[in-house]
Design a protein around this nucleic acid. Structure first.
Lengths: 198, 198, 198, 198
DNA sequence: AATGAATGAGCTTTCATTCAT
DNA sequence: CATGAATGAAAGCTCATTCAT
């Protein structure tokens, strides 16, 4: 769907994505019908299919928008950091913060990862983020700041820790205090540092 | 659904659960229809509803069976370990191994965690496992083997690392070599150990 | 279904009819499933089809049993009455009393009258009762106790009054006091008597 | 189901109600499927659920429409009557006539009265009609035209007579001649008049 | 751009009935 | 006589998508 949209058109598209993202996150993608979405906005069904080819494309668009935003935040976070380790830490913090702020996107990512129809689209973005983090890890190794091992795996480990933590918060099983974030950051850093004097 | 089942009945129930679990994991819960399941077994539709109240209850039963099996494996793994740290390590290894061996269950857990209808049922099992791990962490703290901090959070961090790793393997993004497992175990242990001499 | 039944068999058949009659009356014929009936008695489905060809035949049997019982009561009520008018009055009273006592049968009659599949079976019994009453009305006319008119219609009118009254009671819109019964009886008698001095 | 309907929409809704009312009356509510209804109109299944939430709501709508129409007729019939007794008589006649003309509605009322799911909705309309009639009876008592007794019961008695009579006609057991109507009207009036000189 | 109406395949579920044991 | 298992047609209903206006 590549339509030239007017100003108003862009707004409508955004509205649809926002509303749908919330319903998808709260109710689930499958249980949320297109009818529900358009009724929620008080528009006709035609509107939906004017802006999106299908419900599937809608979710894909939402996911892409979310990944773009997360990516921006991560990029911004590490600029100005002087050492690889600082870049790693800032990246972790940025990811956690963004995920805590964007419950809806986060939950949609989680769901999309369980569905082959969407997992592929997600993969690319995730790989970019992981490769980025891995590069910093790699840099730190070269700089002798941390012992040599597989940078990609380490990056993934950190992703696992932060993701799980945010998940807990959004499920209401944990409160998002500074302590919690510090704990996760610490866990990651010491995990990366490995058998080393501090 | 509490029905007295004959030997044959038990077998059919098991068949339905096995087949459905595989379809759910490969195709998704929502996209897999009851019709597909009964056709796959070559039985009439009524058979399904003889053994389960609904498609939802079927998934819940599958999840419960999976959690029970995982729990058993974890219990068996830590018996005979002499120190808290050894218990932690064995528990991590057992969880990873079980999850790698039971792709279908693992993927259903992942999906169920994204759907409120099933997440609650999952929570209890997860909490038990986490509390168990947290106790070993706590024991290690008391024994002075690791520095004091929040045992529950640490347990969750380890769960996050292992879960994410297994997820990668099942998505085909990583090969399940010994190295990979060692890396994760190491990451967890050093993460738990924190700022400490080795 | 003409099966020679043992003592125990008769009892089972009776049990099935009793239980089903209650469920049919309370829940409706269509919404009550055979499964529900056999489960209510704690027996297998085979039992049901041993005693009845079908659910339909079951209801027909219940209706027939009810009509037989009502007929008996009516017959008994009018024996010993000396005048036609007394027979009419006693018949009315007996019908009302029986119907009040046998809510289940009464409600099934009401339902059956709305369904072609059962209405025919009912008709015969009703016609017998009406013809009986009509004969007494006719006798009263010949005896000069009431003015000439259509005895059959008058009998039906009385049936309408009593039926409606009982219906009200069973729906909980009226309490079954003596007054209520007297009122109905009076209404019928004066309706039958017509333009006449008292 | 509160949908803004276009002209065309209103027509479709009406079509569905008309067709369904006929099938329900002839075949029974339960035995008539939604598929049968939409096929009868040559439209897709979705059309049905565009206009009605459920099959149950459809019947409720039909019943409400019928009651509204009957009520209108009754209201019109008694305007211009000068005495309470005349109002009573005109009301009876109007009810009988309407019921004879609207076999479909009448039969649906009869069925609905036997099913708890619909009986409640019916009750309100019936009570209004009965209370109306009871008021006229009450007026007649105050005017000394008839002896004192329970006006509500008398109104119900009349309802019972007329209902039963119409039922007979619709079942083909009676022809709807003037005589028949006169007989019923007379029965009711003398029943109401009670032990009184004429 | 937008609407209300329509489509129809497909969904989950029910249920009268049959059958092997 | 009785049971639990099985059948499969058909039920009520949903929903992504299309279309006429």
């Amino acid at each position: 769907m590549d339509r030239k949209l007017t100003q108003r058109g862009e707004e409508r598209r955004r509205q649809l994505m926002d509303f749908a993202a919330n319903r998808f996150a709260d109710n689930g993608y499958h249980p949320t019908s297109v009818a529900e979405i358009v009724e929620g906005l008080g528009v006709g069904k035609g509107v939906f299919y004017w802006y999106f080819d299908s419900k599937e494309e809608l979710l894909r668009s939402i996911l892409a928008a979310g990944q773009l935003d997360l990516r921006r935040r991560q990029r911004a976070a590490i600029t100005g950091a002087s050492t690889p380790m600082e870049r790693i830490e800032r990246g972790i913090r940025a990811s956690i913060e963004w995920s805590l702020e964007h419950r809806v996107f986060f939950q949609l990512f989680q769901f999309a990862a369980t569905d082959d129809r969407f997992a592929d689209g997600l993969r690319k973005g995730e790989q970019i983020a992981v490769r980025d983090a891995a590069r910093h890890v790699s840099d730190a190794m070269e700089a002798g700041e941390i012992p040599d091992s597989n940078p990609n795996l380490l990056a993934h480990n950190m992703l696992g820790v932060t993701t799980h933590l945010v998940h807990l918060v959004h499920r209401g099983l944990l409160e998002a205090t500074d302590d919690v974030v510090e704990n996760a950051v610490g866990f990651c850093l010491y995990g990366v540092l490995g058998p080393r004097q501090t």
